[in-house]
């Protein structure tokens, strides 16, 4: 039996995954195994902690809890559509984390939702997509 192809879906906000779920019926999913990778950016979190006057580590703990919750929520959504999915959370420098993940695991393609956000989170997301398009040897798909 042919190996299932590993599709990495890195995301920094839940709207991205909703957009990807909407596009799943149009994608061939039977021969693929999806990996939802929730990324938390430390730089963005530091700015947020300053703005909120909240301890950085406390804020990270809350963000990680929320990140895992969203991962489990979306894992249920994918499974209810019969789509094979695994979940991973990483925090740090987003670009380093994605590249590290691609090196560590056998990923065949990277799937992104189109970016419509502005502001810092929009910039982080655009940088992430541009970096993948320009530097990754993996196939990159944007839906």
């Amino acid at each position: 039996m042919a190996r299932k192809r590993n599709v990495l879906i890195p995301f920094i906000d839940s709207d991205d995954i909703n957009r990807i779920i909407d596009s799943l019926p149009g994608l061939r999913t039977e021969d693929k195994r999806y990996i939802l990778l929730r990324l938390l950016d430390h730089e963005q979190s530091r700015l947020l902690s300053k703005r909120m006057e909240k301890d950085f580590h406390l804020l990270m703990a809350e963000l990680e809890d929320d990140g895992w919750k969203s991962l489990y929520f979306f894992q249920e959504e994918f499974k209810s559509l019969g789509v094979n999915v695994r979940i991973v959370l990483r925090s740090g420098n987003i670009l380093k984390e994605i590249h590290g993940f691609l090196k560590e695991y056998n990923i065949d393609m990277v799937l992104f939702a189109r970016s419509y956000k502005t502001g810092l989170s929009g910039k982080i997301k655009s940088d992430m997509i541009n970096d993948m398009l320009l530097s990754s040897e993996k196939m990159v798909i944007i839906v």
Partner: peptide
């Protein structure tokens, strides 16, 4: 349910 899954996942990280 989700908060519990989330808490265990974070703890085990």
């Amino acid at each position: 349910y989700l908060p519990l899954l989330s808490r265990i996942s974070r703890m085990c990280s």
